[in-house]
Every structure is written in structure tokens, then in C-alpha cells.
């Protein structure tokens, strides 16, 4: 799933400076599951913004709404009437939803309330781990189902590097958390699968043109297009 984190309040307040009629729009899909931007969080943020305005003696109209999915036109139709009442929309969806809103509601000033950060897996309740880099050229078949593109700090294709120690990466995460060495995991998995020979193959340079290095990507399924 796509995960996101709410932007710091100060950044949001700076964005909203001088704007007194704001709709906070949640999205009830990915960002709701990661407890960042669903209806509940949209209601909380709207309340926070009203509290801030009230404490400063500013008169504002700040309400919240939520779409089942901000990234699909059909669901945006369902909140269109509400959006029409507000000149400014603070979207709590991922970057995709925010852009769909901006495109769909061309008259509204659509602003981001979150930082979209990864394609993550919920490891346990309220903990997400990055699992996919959407590189456009999946190599999990060769790496025991463990992605070196996003799980190795250096995206090594022929690891582990000299910084792998006791199963951990030499790099610590942004919140000082320990990072398991992806190549230590790959090594263990391939050995367990009896694929030692795979470890000895030199993986050639990756074709990054299939990733964002090739320019913005587009996917079309002709056979599925409406007739």
C-alpha cells in the first residue's frame, strides 16, 4: 500500500496563511489504512486548524469531508458538491489523490497535507516498512523475494557490501532505527532454497529506463478499454 505522513502543522499553517475557507479532504483508502489521512484524521486536522484560528481570534470556516478514493474520478464526483463550497482544499490523500483533486477541481486551490513516503507493508499494527520501489523491472525472482532496490541502503545488485554486520546494515534509518541488511536476508533465503549458484551470478546493471529515469510512465490496457 501507499503510505504517507502528515506534514508538520507549521508547514500547513504557512500554506494556509490568509485562507479562511478551507475544506480538509480525507481519502479512505491507503492513507486511511496507514492512519494518516482517512476521514478520522481529516476531522482531527480540521479541528486543529479551527482551534488554531480561534486561539488567534481569526474567524474561519474549516470543514472536513472524505472520498472513498481520491485517485479515481467516480469517487470525486461524490464529494464534488462539497468541494464546490470551498476555494481551498487541503488534501490528505497520497500524491496521486492530491493531483487527481487538483485536476478534477480546477477552480479549487488544492494543497497537500501529507508527505507521501513509500510503498510499504504493515509489519504489525501501526508499523510500516518500505517494500517496493516501483522500479518497473521486478527482480524478486532472483533475490529470494527480498527487494534490494529499496531494502538495501545502496540498492546493490551484487551485495552484501562490507558494511553488513550481524545481519544489520551499517546505515541507521532516519529515526535511528536498525535496518536489516537486505543482502544478508537474500543470502539466507537463497541458501535455504539451495540456490547458492544464484549468489555467484553477476547481476548486470539494472535498466533504470523502466523506472522514473525513463520519464513519466503510462500504462494502457487496450483489451480492457471500453468499446
Amino acid at each position: 500500500m501507499i503510505t504517507a505522513e502528515r506534514k508538520p502543522l507549521d508547514e500547513l499553517l504557512a500554506m494556509l496563511e490568509g485562507k479562511d475557507k478551507v475544506l480538509v479532504a480525507g481519502c479512505d483508502t491507503c492513507v486511511a489504512v496507514c492512519l494518516t489521512g482517512g476521514e478520522k484524521e481529516a476531522e482531527i486536522l480540521a479541528s486543529e486548524l479551527r482551534i488554531k484560528a480561534k486561539a488567534e481570534g481569526r474567524s474561519v470556516q474549516i470543514e472536513h469531508t472524505s472520498a472513498i478514493r481520491q485517485c479515481e474520478w467516480e469517487y470525486l464526483d461524490m464529494i464534488a458538491a462539497k468541494v464546490a463550497e470551498f476555494p481551498v482544499v487541503l488534501s490528505m490523500a497520497c500524491g496521486i489523490g492530491i493531483q487527481s483533486m487538483a485536476e478534477k477541481f480546477a477552480d479549487a486551490y488544492v494543497l497537500p497535507a501529507v508527505n507521501t513516503n513509500m510503498l510499504g507493508m504493515p509489519q504489525e499494527h501501526a508499523v510500516w516498512l518500505e517494500r517496493c520501489g516501483a522500479c518497473g523491472d521486478c527482480l524478486l525472482a532472483d533475490t529470494g523475494g527480498i527487494c534490494p532496490v529499496v531494502r538495501c541502503s545502496k540498492s546493490l545488485m551484487n551485495g552484501p557490501c562490507g558494511g553488513s554486520h550481524a545481519g544489520l546494515c551499517e546505515v541507521t534509518g532516519p529515526n535511528k532505527e536498525e535496518i536489516p541488511c537486505a543482502w544478508a536476508l537474500i543470502y539466507d533465503k537463497l541458501i535455504a532454497q539451495g540456490r547458492q549458484d544464484k549468489l555467484m551470478e553477476i547481476t548486470p546493471p539494472k535498466d533504470w529506463s523502466k523506472s522514473s529515469s525513463g520519464g513519466p510512465r503510462k500504462m494502457v490496457r487496450e483489451e480492457a478499454k471500453p468499446v
Binding site: K40, E43, I44, S47, E48, R50, I51, K54
Partner: peptide, 11 residues
């Protein structure tokens, strides 16, 4: 108790 309840009370 929800977080929003605490905020609504303050609001």
C-alpha cells in the same frame, strides 16, 4: 474515547 473528542471539547 477518540482524539477528536478531546479536540472538540477544547474547540
Amino acid at each position: 474515547l477518540e482524539i477528536i473528542h478531546l479536540l472538540k471539547a477544547l474547540e
